[in-house]
Design a protein around this nucleic acid. Structure first.
Lengths: 235, 235
DNA sequence: TCAAAAGTGTTCACAGTACACCCATGC
DNA sequence: GCATGGGTGTACTGTGAACACTTTTGA
């Protein structure tokens, strides 16, 4: 007979693994911890779960406090329960990973947290088991983006095919054939070609595309293989 | 400044979504809750997390209490944190899903819990948000088994190709071409053909296979598409 | 000898790959 | 005109789907 009243109660936190893409590298957003212990050290954005909020609510709240952004793509990653993970008091942490458009983000960021972006292949030492969380998030991002149109969340509303391709190449650390990449992306019917071109990155200019939001939500869960044939050069 | 001492503490539980395969249907193991509230109602196997154990530890412990089995395939599914999910006191539940060989299970089951197997398409009303958990687990099982050699966990050490095929058909609620199924499974190099045959289910008899455990763990995470081409008849 | 289920062979269509080629533009 | 990057065309290859066929055995 399990009596509720006899059970131990635990501290509960959320931690956010926040990814962004700057046109070059896939990056991770971390902050400098503002309170003891480990004040000043790099840490994932996190916070305790309040008495009257869900973990999703808490994650969205802390993300908004930092970035000012609502409606960010976010999903539960995993829950970390090891006894020794927080050295102050045993704390269970529910980790979320988030994808944000780094441009949009820059407009609203709160500097109170001393936030910093690190390239995903060059993440500093983080407190507690946060590096483990980041590794798991990277794995999941690669896994999921291979099957679902996830990476659009990292781009602005308008983007070119070459931009999209560099993003995929950054995430998978490899190179794709542009012709095949093009056709594969278009075959999904998820992209709408716009009239105007981006002329900053090439003389000819590259057409902008946007995501067909209706088809996007409809086909998000269909099992498409979004990773075009890799040219395994360095990967 | 977030002070640990000012934070709310929460009850923490684990719940197990346990799948088995009886040669016919994919089934879910549930128990009759033995304590108030909702005593006597169907429920997932669960339990509170103790002061000195991890959630994985707690899940393995309750699973062993019920089935007597060690080393069962188990993975974290998701954490449920809605305020109203437990009507007695706010409780966070970390859900695990487990795959067991139903034959092995039958030898050691503890009847104290009033356990019962239900076909996966005919699960009764469960307490709290347990039906939601089951739905999520079904989705994840289908998703993951399409990409990884997961379903072998549901079969005995020796099994025939037709048995394996019916299992896949039960999970995906569809029918596969036996020739193509055969070849696809063999192409993974994960199966070892044994000398003896099962002669119970056919006159000719079907060769037994076993999993090549070395290759199994090596290739578990490679992105293979394990779902052979479906013949979409009913689903 | 026949039915039933196991297992093999063969064709066909299509998706993925590699790579050559053309296009538009700024300098 | 020519270098640069965007975009298209195309031939080749391998995989998956469909289905006909052979094998084995019990009744």
């Amino acid at each position: 007979m399990r009596r509720y009243s006899l059970q131990k109660r635990f501290l509960l936190a959320v931690d956010c693994i926040i990814f962004g893409y700057d046109g070059q590298d896939l990056k991770l957003l971390v902050i400098q911890r503002s309170f003891e212990p480990f004040k000043g050290q790099w840490s994932l954005l996190g916070g305790f779960i309040g008495e009257h909020e869900s973990s999703e609510g808490a994650a969205a709240r802390v993300l908004k406090e930092l970035t000012g952004m609502d409606g960010v793509y976010m999903e539960q990653l995993s829950t970390f329960t090891e006894q020794e993970r927080d050295t102050v008091e045993r704390t269970i942490s529910i980790a979320y990973f988030a994808l944000i458009d780094i441009q949009k983000y820059k407009q609203q960021i709160s500097e109170d947290y001393n936030p910093a972006w690190f390239p995903i292949n060059d993440v500093p030492d983080l407190i507690f088991d946060h590096n483990k969380m980041v590794e798991l998030a990277k794995e999941k991002l690669r896994y999921k983006a291979a099957l679902h149109p996830l990476l659009f969340e990292l781009l602005p509303a308008k983007f070119t095919m070459p931009q999209l391709q560099s993003l995929y190449q950054a995430v998978y650390n490899t190179e794709f054939d542009k012709g095949n990449f093009n056709r594969k992306m278009l075959s999904t019917k998820l992209l709408v070609k716009l009239k105007d071109k981006d002329k900053l990155n090439s003389k000819k200019g590259a057409f902008y595309f946007k995501v067909d939001t209706k088809k996007y939500s409809a086909s998000f869960n269909s099992f498409l293989n979004f990773v075009p044939g890799p040219v395994p050069k360095g990967g």
